[in-house]
Design a protein around this nucleic acid. Structure first.
Lengths: 151, 151
DNA sequence: TATTGTTATACTCTATAACTATA
DNA sequence: TATAGTTATAGAGTATAACAATA
């Protein structure tokens, strides 16, 4: 046989055995649902993550943000440029250490997060809609065990 | 307070509630471990995925590959160029449909997959090293339920 | 007309290295 | 000297649109 018949189902070989493969598929599903249902085309999981982190840590620095979200300091710059241009985040010079910026959400930023929260929770509910409460708890715990591999 | 104290631990706000956030962290951990331990710098989960798919489906077309790995046909081209340049994959003109290429691993490609298999399995063992057999099975099943959200 | 692979192109995301201002 | 933010730049990865060959 030189070529597979067009109607033959594709075999996934050893991929389905691999946790990493399933994680990638799960993340694709999450990303797709988020982008379709949360905040319109200008919102992404990463941007929302930055907003959530700055909200939870008013006055945090860009270096702290970079570490928290696991990106290089230089990558944070354009993300904040974007959010600042939309009037969602503010960079104030930190008075006690004038090398740093103290980050905070603007009133508009706070309002946007508040507005997105129901959409994020609806998104979350769709993701786990085939899992009961116990299973959700279990999934979180098991993912934590995988995450702890790096540390 | 204008700026967080440098020693104050960062709060992650609502992110830890979100399955999508945990999935992203888990995938970062997987990707990092894979790239550090499987095959050297020229191997990535995506390239390995292509090799595994072509191995499991000798004669498959690029369009089938694109669908299986969820990329655009045009994105497959440069991936195959790379693998073909390394002598791992072969594009033969399909005789029964001369628009298509029939993809297969070369002998070197087969040998590389065989060589990487132990490394991939060791990688896999590290990922799930804090999970017992039951938990591994549960994690796979729960991830499948999340993945099924898109379909 | 539709499909397959390809090309040209552009966009997004990310990192590295070098710079500045501050410490 | 070291750190925080920035800039310039480059690389990887991806998609869209248009094209030639084939169906």
């Amino acid at each position: 046989m030189v070529q597979r018949a067009a109607n033959t189902p594709i075999r996934f070989g050893l991929l389905p055995e691999l946790i990493g493969y399933r994680l990638r598929l799960a993340q694709l599903a999450v990303f797709k649902d988020f982008c379709e249902h949360v905040g319109g085309a200008e919102m992404t999981p990463t941007l929302f993550g930055v907003l959530a982190l700055v909200e939870a840590n008013p006055g945090m620095t860009q270096a702290q943000l970079a570490e928290a979200i696991q990106l290089d300091r230089s990558s944070i710059v354009s993300i904040l440029d974007k959010l600042e241009a939309r009037g969602l985040v503010e960079r104030r010079r930190a008075p006690n250490n004038r090398r740093s910026n103290a980050l905070r959400l603007t009133a508009d930023g706070e309002a946007l997060v508040a507005e997105l929260l129901p959409e994020v929770h609806a998104h979350e509910q769709r993701l786990v809609r085939h899992l009961d409460a116990d299973e959700q708890k279990t999934l979180r715990a098991l993912l934590d065990k995988v995450i702890s591999v790096t540390s």
